[in-house]
């Protein structure tokens, strides 16, 4: 239990740092920036906890995105107003599997290399990682869009 809590704390801290950094890059105002940090920590904490209980990466990412969107657009709606969507998006950015996508594309490059061995294994690994990226990105998008559609978000 203690190692899992330590892993969750570490992931939440790094998630908060990444979400804040991207919030600054996106020129978010200081108050929404604090919510970005909280949302990033929440997203990574939920995802890491679910992964620790054997949930798949894709499902854990989807549920984390739903949680963060409910946090931003539901619980903090009064304070965030139309910022809620932007905060939910920034908070979910640390879960975008950019590195895995780059790796899967590199895997495709490797498939065409002259000395690729064994081909079947390389091909399977590449396709599996590509599919995981697609499902994870899909999970993030659906996890943000569906709660917002249900909550009838206030955009103005």
């Amino acid at each position: 239990m203690i190692p899992l809590l330590a892993t969750i704390f570490r992931a939440a801290s790094l998630g908060a740092l990444a979400a804040t950094g991207f919030g600054v890059l996106f020129n978010a105002a200081p108050r929404p920036l604090a919510f970005c940090a909280a949302g990033g920590a929440l997203a990574l904490a939920v995802r890491t906890a679910l992964l620790g209980h054997g949930v798949s990466l894709e499902a854990a990412t989807f549920l984390a995105a739903v949680t963060v969107t409910l946090f931003a657009a539901g619980l903090c709606r009064q304070r965030l107003g139309s910022n809620a969507t932007a905060v939910a998006v920034a908070a979910c950015i640390p879960m975008v599997p950019g590195a895995f996508f780059a790796r899967s594309l590199l895997g495709l490059f490797a498939l065409t290399a002259p000395d690729v061995l064994p081909l079947d294994q390389s091909f399977t690994d590449t396709v599996v990682s590509m599919l995981r990226v697609v499902f994870t990105v899909g999970g993030i998008g659906a996890g943000i869009a569906l709660p917002l559609a249900v909550l009838r978000r206030c955009e103005f």
């Binding site: 570490r10 992931a11 998630g15 740092l17 950094g21 991207f22 600054v24 890059l25 640390p94």
Partner: peptide, 16 residues
Amino acid sequence: LVVTAVGFACAAFAGL
């Protein structure tokens, strides 16, 4: 500040 924030964000990504 943007450059510093991006640096920290990517380092956090690397840690994750």
